[in-house]
Design a protein around this nucleic acid. Sequence first.
DNA 1: CGACATCTCCGCCTGTAGACGGAGATGAAA
DNA 2: TTTCATCTCCGTCTACAGGCGGAGATGTCG
Lengths: 211, 211
Amino acid sequence: MIRVAVVDDHEMVRKGIISYLITEPEIEIVGEANSGNGAVSLVLEKRPEVVLMDLLMENGTGIDATKEILKEYPECKIIIITSFYDDEQVFPAIEAGAFSYILKTATAEEVVRAIQKAVAGETVIEPKVANRMMKRFRPQERKPHDELTEREMEVLMCIGEGMTNQQISEELFIGIKTVKTHVSNILSKLDVTDRTQAAVYANRNGLVQNQ
Amino acid sequence: MIRVAVVDDHEMVRKGIISYLITEPEIEIVGEANSGNGAVSLVLEKRPEVVLMDLLMENGTGIDATKEILKEYPECKIIIITSFYDDEQVFPAIEAGAFSYILKTATAEEVVRAIQKAVAGETVIEPKVANRMMKRFRPQERKPHDELTEREMEVLMCIGEGMTNQQISEELFIGIKTVKTHVSNILSKLDVTDRTQAAVYANRNGLVQNQ
DNA sequence: CGACATCTCCGCCTGTAGACGGAGATGAAA
DNA sequence: TTTCATCTCCGTCTACAGGCGGAGATGTCG
């Protein structure tokens, strides 16, 4: 008997998943949760072997819930089951300790198989997701800003906000001359000619917090 | 008897929705589709009163499917049922002729009610979605760059590319002095202090072709 | 220890940016 | 026609940007 918990903020998705599992005699649904916080208390109480977990939820993400659960209950097999579109979260999910990663496009058979394999200690990764993971381990394509030092990166982010050297010196508590030195180094490393181009670079490469 | 079709590329979501409806005696599921194209042929064949339609699908979006269906079968009540996150598509969906717009966070009761109301000719719009719609009809919030002249907009796009005044004058075949005049006017109208901030503005507001 | 990277700051110099005020040419609108 | 917006250009002036070369204070690594 495999005890399973289902976590998703959409009730209809939970019902859909459960309809997949209800026909399987060796699987027992021990509970549902509609939030990350709810998932933690549910799983720590019911101690299911497997958790099917969505990532995007309103109260506490699946990532945080996964970390919390594994801290108290490390044997738990957490299967991330999410949409294709939030692929930035694939890697954080793996780091958080997720055991498998499947998509909501999965069929009933695929979900059941993922659960059975999880109990057997086998990880299941969707091919599309696996491809994205592989890229992480392939030799990274080098971005010009990789060679910026930490301080230079801070200055670049300020430039990306449109700040002047004076404002940056006040923001970072350093002298204007120092800022100028950093800026010169940044322009050189990014292979641009002035701060405006550096600002454009920073914004296009997502180096600025504020969108 | 209300005849209903369910369209979503995720089987588990379809099963979840169907589990909501299967208990309702006056609702009959006449078919499922997992793509926009499939939805069109299904609906035109089975002629359900109501269609529950997801927007994001692999083969043909829900928007296109909605248009296609209504072209041949305009009495059909199409209820969009999608995630909260693809809100840019709310307006296109309404324009395409969708009858109601609910979210995947909806409970079984809400889905059933939306179907019943659709048959009765009443539209259901989720409050969160309705708020976004209202903004469309409220006096448009004026973006600072709306008051830029055509020429000033061209200059701003050049600034957004990181070009100097010299380069802009060559690009637009005008004198540097003219460029400076435009730049001064742009800075004033955008309420920024220098070209770097203008470049940041242009990039953040999607005024530049190249991403 | 020495080599190296990083962060900090200095002076000097040139060029660009940008503000300010003025002005002619054009075309559309009242 | 007169008015207005737009695009074009001019001169002047100040401040900031950025290059160049130098240098002291750290901390790390072999």
